[in-house]
């Protein structure tokens, strides 16, 4: 089951600094488990970030991205209270969407 992401979005000027932590095994298909059998490929394939429903990042990832990935982006023209939503889909069809609100810089 997909675990929730942790999303932090803080406004800096007119730009939202968005930082996303995801929990995912990101298996490369090369590792062997304790029994010596290859662990099948299991990785996040696509990541979609939207700002108030409008796509601002649509990324295709590969197994080269690390376990428990971190994603940082800056969204221009954001305001306090805007909704930032992040969705990932992995190669097994598992997906997860989480949302955060842009907060004022502390």
């Amino acid at each position: 089951m997909a675990e929730p992401m942790k999303i932090r979005a803080t406004l800096q000027g007119d730009t939202a600094d968005v930082r996303v932590l995801m929990l995912h095994p990101m298996e490369t298909g090369q590792r062997r488990d304790g029994k010596g059998e290859i662990v099948p490929l299991h990785y996040i394939q696509s990541v979609l970030v939207t700002h108030n429903g409008k796509a601002v990042l649509d990324a295709q990832w590969s197994q080269a991205v690390s376990r428990n990935p971190f994603l940082g982006i800056r969204v221009k023209g954001a305001r306090v209270g805007d909704k930032i939503s992040v969705t990932w889909v992995d190669n097994k069809g598992d997906k997860r969407t989480d949302e955060a609100t842009v907060a004022a810089a502390s």
Binding site: E3, M5, R19
Partner: peptide
């Protein structure tokens, strides 16, 4: 430390 993945373990 700024974006500590450990936060996800707190959630879980």
């Amino acid at each position: 430390a700024e974006d500590n993945p450990g936060e996800l373990w707190v959630q879980r």
